[in-house]
């Protein structure tokens, strides 16, 4: 019983700290009063009833989906190749480790220059951020395949296609799903700053727009929405992983 209540206690404590901090800040700079929980909740309820916020959310989620799909389409084949071919792995590992450590946002100016303003550079940044955990987890999954499964496939004279589709891909799905979970976490973090340049909708845009409108309660409400959606996405990825394992 206590176990169920503890997370709520944590959230409540955070809300109290938030109220206290906003109150203290409000005493110094009066405009900070609109940061506090009361106005934020009011703004949130207002926004939820309108259409604007939902459109921004829908657009952001659509970008997440597109970025993730591109990352999967690139990351899984490259990961399988890395796991299966020592030659490919030795050739590409330093490159991948190098590229992985570059914050995707550093590509932003170049992405906008090459791909133009609009959705394309955002997709690029999200996919670029998400491809590494998927690629690396896929490769790790291939490396951890039970060698007897491959022996079994060979004893059945399995074709390459059969081995790939019936043994290797299902055998690494748990690892891929782990990669997807990590990727969603990264995408969600990169999304907001990526939407702050060159697009005219989405949660990142909404944050900047609220600032320009001096609608600080809207800004705080958007932060709550971003946190809540991120939590839901992670939860969904986790339960997908659990269901696959039949544990």
């Amino acid at each position: 019983m206590v176990g169920i209540l503890l997370p709520f206690a944590g959230l409540l404590a955070a809300a109290l700290l938030w109220a206290a901090g906003a109150g203290w800040l409000g005493a110094v700079t009066p405009v900070a009063a609109s940061f506090s929980p009361g106005p934020t909740v009011d703004a949130l309820l207002q926004l939820l009833q309108g259409r604007d916020l939902w459109e921004h959310v829908a657009l952001s989620l659509q970008r997440v989906a597109v970025g993730l799909v591109i990352a999967l389409l690139l990351g899984i084949p490259l990961g399988v190749l890395t796991g299966l071919s020592p030659l490919f792995s030795r050739t590409t590992t330093p490159l991948f480790q190098f590229a992985r450590m570059i914050s995707p946002l550093s590509w932003m100016p170049i992405a906008v220059m090459v791909l133009g303003v609009g959705d394309a550079p955002v997709y690029f940044l999200l996919a670029f951020a998400a491809v590494w955990p998927i690629l690396l987890n896929t490769a790790a999954g291939v490396a951890q395949l039970d060698p007897n499964w491959l022996l079994l496939a060979r004893s059945l004279s399995a074709t390459r296609r059969e081995t790939l589709l019936r043994v290797i891909l299902p055998g690494i799905t748990a690892h891929i799903l782990t990669g997807v979970r990590l990727a969603i976490g990264i995408i969600w973090i990169v999304l907001v700053p990526a939407e702050m340049l060159g697009v005219s909708a989405g949660l990142g845009y909404f944050i900047l727009d609220s600032r320009d409108r001096l609608a600080y309660s809207d800004l705080m409400a958007a932060i709550l929405v971003i946190g809540f959606l991120g939590y839901l996405l992670d939860h969904a990825a986790r339960s997908l992983h659990r269901r696959w394992l039949h544990a």
């Binding site: 039970d146 007897n148 499964w149 079994l152 004893s155 299902p170 394992l245």
Partner: peptide, 12 residues
Amino acid sequence: ALVFQQPSLLPW
């Protein structure tokens, strides 16, 4: 047909 030391069933 082959049988190994480990069952090596496909968990999915």
